[in-house]
Nucleic acid binder design. Structure first.
Lengths: 246, 246
DNA sequence: AAAATAATGTGTTAATATTACACATTAAAT
DNA sequence: ATTTAATGTGTAATATTAACACATTATTTT
């Protein structure tokens, strides 16, 4: 039995007081949230970035984040960051991973919980006046500040996986959209081309779309039909959504 | 523009000193890891539980966890807990989710990062002498201490999903195993019955198994062939493992 | 006004993957 | 020697996925 084992055994019989003391006096660590905010604009998947807070990293872009307050729920902190930056509530948000190596942040030990979210860019265009903040095509995102590149990569991969398992894409589109827009979205996120006929067949067979009997307007070509996402049917069929698998 | 928005703008231009001060003086939170340690024994999927540390919860079982030290990487803390409890190194370990509501732990604000791990019970049987620690059939796990039931449920679901996407099961089996053992494992984890012929066909077609040309011994019936996992071929085919999908 | 352009909209076939299903064989136990 | 309880094996039906081309429509250009 090693020293560690003995310590572990002792730990097992720790009292409430001992734990409280540890929680209160030692072992506390700064915790932050970082949000990878995705948007879809000009047929490209984009991410909202901010110039790094720290002078040392002034030339680099970073994710939107903030420290979590001691009396604040983790998810609330993520929603707060989102709301502060986009003005939007009721946003799709998913926790992805927690990054916690000792030296990940230059300002000291900060463990960060990464989230990604999907927003409809149309809804908050006004907010982006600040030149410290911008939407960047995900294809061009490299060399973010700190470990934010790794966080971004992890979240982007998660999005790519999730969108093949669940109909998340609608969070990125306006209420009314054409099938072409929907397909462009999937192609952008997954970075591949799909067959139009198979794409349409798949989505129609899933009964997720409501035909609005309206047509696109102001497009420089034959207009397509407009659809909206049918939330009710999705709830019903949640178990049977098994991936796009084009 | 709301007060929050203004605060956000100000935050964007925070200096290194301001951040360091926040990191060092305020906003620090106790962080822990909790591990859902799965094992496979007597044809059942089991989880390693410990009697709750706190008197108040003395009648309840809880997951294995500990506070993270300020100079310790997150993953290292999880490995440390595992090593302390099982004596094993080189264990499969995956981070799942971070639980961080303000009131989740009675001893104060503690945010916890949940991991699950898969171990071969044969390798550490000796350790379980302590009656504060036991292996419990996952089917009977209810009403754990604190929010550990939720953490357990989340990790168990993750395992069920992962095992359909990656060949993780081998971490739970002895080096040499029969196809029946492998199938029992999958059936236990996924809580369903599968067709033997289809199961075998699937695994053989994936080229993951090496036939050892040995037979089971000391079984009260016709012995089956023994196999081992072929790691090399798995690495090669990583991209093409697309789920069991029985 | 006619022609060119650039997109939408639609069905079928082949290939692949999944599911369903039954009987002979082997070693141990009785 | 018989019974028992498991292993080991193949095929046909079904469902899913992938590949593929042409007519139609509205806009733009000439």
């Amino acid at each position: 039995m090693t020293a560690d084992d003995i310590k572990a055994m002792l730990h097992a019989s720790k009292t409430m007081q001992a734990i409280q003391s540890e929680v209160e006096n030692t072992n506390r660590i700064a915790l932050s949230v970082d949000c990878v905010i995705f948007g879809f604009e000009e047929n490209k998947l984009k991410v909202l970035l901010i110039r790094s807070d720290l002078k040392k990293y002034k030339e680099k872009w970073s994710l939107l984040g903030d420290l979590i307050k001691p009396n604040e729920d983790l998810d609330s902190a993520a929603y707060r960051v989102l709301h502060q930056r986009t003005g939007l509530d009721d946003i799709f948000l998913e926790q992805v991973h927690t990054f916690g190596t000792v030296k990940r942040h230059p300002a000291g030990r900060v463990v960060t919980v990464a989230y990604y979210s999907l927003i409809n860019v149309e809804h908050h265009k006004l907010k982006i006046l600040d030149n410290e903040l911008h939407w960047q095509d995900v294809k061009t995102v490299t060399d973010l500040a700190f470990d934010h590149q790794e966080i971004f990569d992890t979240c982007y991969k998660r999005l790519q996986k999730r969108i093949q398992e669940h109909p998340l894409g609608f969070n990125l589109l306006p209420k009314k959209f054409s099938l072409r827009e929907l397909q462009n979205l999937y192609e952008s996120i997954l970075d591949l081309k799909m067959d139009r006929r198979n794409f349409r067949k798949k989505f129609f067979s899933m009964n997720l779309l409501t035909d609005l009997n309206e047509m696109e307007k102001d497009v420089p070509h034959r207009p397509g039909k407009l659809y909206q996402f049918n939330f009710k049917k999705y709830e019903k069929n949640k178990k049977t959504w098994i991936g796009i698998d084009f």
